[in-house]
Computed example of a mutant assay.
Amino acid sequence: MKLNKIHHIAIICSNYEKSKKFYTEILGLTPKNEVYRKERDSYKLDLAVNGQYQVELFSFPNPPDRPSFPEAAGLRHLAFEVDNIEEAVEELQAKGIEVEMVRIDEFTEKKFTFFADPDGMPIELYEK
C-alpha cells in the first residue's frame, strides 16, 4: 500500500459554536463546507489549513470525554507547523489563549509548545 498524505483529521467537540469560533477565529482555519445532519443531530464543518482541506469539526449530542491527562491511548495531539513560534505564541496570548512555555525538541533542536482547544485537546505548534 502506498499512502500519499493525511487526508483529514476529525475532531468531535462538545460545544459546536465555541469550537467553530476557536478553530476559525483563533487559529484562522478557513471554513470550506458546513452541513447539518438532522438524522444525527450533528454539524460537520470542513476546514482548510493554508488552503488545504485537512480538519473536520463535528458536533454530536453529549459526546463522552476523552482523557488527555494522564495521557490515554489513542490520538495524542494535533500539531501545526509555524514559521516563527514566538510570533504565533504572542498572537494566541493576545486572543486570551494560555500557552505553555516554548521548549526545544532534544532530537531536532526545533522549538515547540502546546495549548488546548475548548475541549482540552492538546494542540502543538512546531517551528519550521
Rank of each mutant, 00 (worst) to 15 (best):
P64V: 11
D105Y: 09
T24K: 04
T24W: 02
N4H: 14
P64T: 04
Y36E: 02
A48H: 01
A116M: 07
N33Y: 07
A116Q: 15
L29Q: 04
V35D: 03
A88K: 15
A73Q: 14
T24R: 08
E71F: 13
N62C: 05
I26F: 01
N62F: 10
V82C: 08
E56D: 13
T30S: 08
V49A: 05
V55D: 00
F107P: 00
E100H: 14
H77D: 08
V55T: 09
S14H: 15
F80P: 01
K5Q: 12
L47C: 01
L75Y: 06
E34G: 06
E71Y: 10
M121K: 10
Y36S: 03
T108P: 04
E127D: 02
E100R: 15
F58D: 01
K21L: 04
T30N: 04
L125K: 06
L125Q: 01
T30I: 15
I97R: 09
S42N: 04
E17Q: 15
F69T: 12
K18L: 10
S68Y: 13
M1K: 11
Y43F: 12
L47F: 02
F107W: 12
D46Q: 14
L92N: 03
A10W: 03
P67F: 06
E106F: 13
E81P: 00
T108G: 01
I6C: 04
R103S: 11
Y53I: 07
P31N: 05
M1D: 04
V55K: 04
Y126G: 00
K21P: 01
K111W: 03
G96H: 11
I123C: 01
F115L: 03
R66A: 09
A73I: 13
L125D: 00
V49I: 14
I85Q: 03
D46K: 15
K38V: 07
V49M: 07
I85K: 07
F107R: 15
D117C: 01
Y53F: 09
D65V: 13
V89Q: 04
A72L: 06
V82K: 06
K44F: 09
N15T: 06
F60N: 10
R76H: 14
I6M: 14
A72R: 12
K128V: 03
M101L: 12
